[in-house]
Design a protein around this nucleic acid. Sequence first.
DNA 1: AGGAAACTTGAAAAATGAGTAACGAAGCCG
DNA 2: CGGCTTCGTTACTCATTTTTCAAGTTTCCT
Lengths: 228, 228
Amino acid sequence: MSNEAEILVIDDEAQIRKLLDITLRTNGYRVNEAQTAREGITKAASHPPDLILLDIGLPDGSGHDVLLKLREWFTNPIIVLSVLNSETDIVKALDNGANDYLVKPFRTGELLARIRSVLRKNQTDENNPVLQLGKLTIDFVARTIKKNNALLKLTSTEYQLLALFAKNEGKVLTHQYLLRMVWGPSYLNQTQYLRVFVAQLRKKIEDNPNQPKHIITESGVGYRFMAE
Amino acid sequence: MSNEAEILVIDDEAQIRKLLDITLRTNGYRVNEAQTAREGITKAASHPPDLILLDIGLPDGSGHDVLLKLREWFTNPIIVLSVLNSETDIVKALDNGANDYLVKPFRTGELLARIRSVLRKNQTDENNPVLQLGKLTIDFVARTIKKNNALLKLTSTEYQLLALFAKNEGKVLTHQYLLRMVWGPSYLNQTQYLRVFVAQLRKKIEDNPNQPKHIITESGVGYRFMAE
DNA sequence: AGGAAACTTGAAAAATGAGTAACGAAGCCG
DNA sequence: CGGCTTCGTTACTCATTTTTCAAGTTTCCT
């Protein structure tokens, strides 16, 4: 299977670059590399890739700046790489527009799965006012959500939250982002609300709320909504 | 197939206007253009089109105001255009009476499909002045409503409200939208009127007004009319 | 493995929203 | 002119939703 997608890797460690390069090429992707923040931005601008893998632990320019600069115009997916135990970095990156993250060291299987996921999502047009996600059907015009063609009764807050999840299928949404979008910017530390409402949503949309398949917890970071 | 429908495009970007103009004309529509909010309202008023395409990201008058002003009297469909990542705008626009939305950039196929969809819906209403919804029969010309073939005695306000519900079957209509359409834009906070008249309508059309099957309450948001 | 932090869950309290009845004013009609 | 209908308005009760709290569980980190 050939997929032709072009990926730009921005990382200062030669070893990681080498590893990524080989892994990605053997899986049919075209790969471009950048060693520094400046080089990354230049290469992304001169020849925009379909996806960027960005190490946010870069020595020059801290990686976060690169992300911000890229997001001023670059709309394709960006996956950030981070060392372990840097949740602050991850949350910050997701809040700044990263689509997903990977903690180093990562299994190549996981890397490829994440890449496929964000690339697939980018292809499907989310313009449609009726969104079909597995068993769930969301109609943004009628403001209804169906599970297996049965209308779900959701409160206003529940609907907003689920609609937000659905529009960002597969992407990790941080606590802060969700709180800002649904409750407003003055509720950023009310993580508890989120927990309560996620529990309620799970009761309504999951087949087995104890083992959620749709709303996945990303501990310390946020939640991720999966269609299947 | 020639359809002759007339479409008014309100957008400040010349490129988009050009694109829409060509696409629509080659598909048999008559097209009129407006560059600003004021021009849009004037043109819509002087020569009402069958459909309006409105960019809600207009520089002057913010687009939302145009929608509100138009909806004070314009009853034909309005499709709003919005840039990506402005979900708040879209939700607001739908609440204020937009019939559908498109996220820029859009595929022309999708644009045409949406236009056909809303026009078809609107046409069946006019061609077929009698709307059959479950046990209810609504005759827009005679301004009469029957339940099981028995003529219902409705007051003018009740009729307006029910007709509005019927035209938007299945869709949530917000308090504000209903108030604006039935009472006018200066009654937006008189939610109580709505409650009173909804109660009266339920007494007349529901089999069991305590457990309404037709006019469903969406707490904190508005009401939804269901045929079955 | 063990302690701390983060998460889940159920249920109460508080806040907000909805439904109902009733009444005066305005308009209509005989 | 006087009865009837409809609308706007108010007061009150009831229902739903949101928030808060508390107890139990999982996950994370050393």
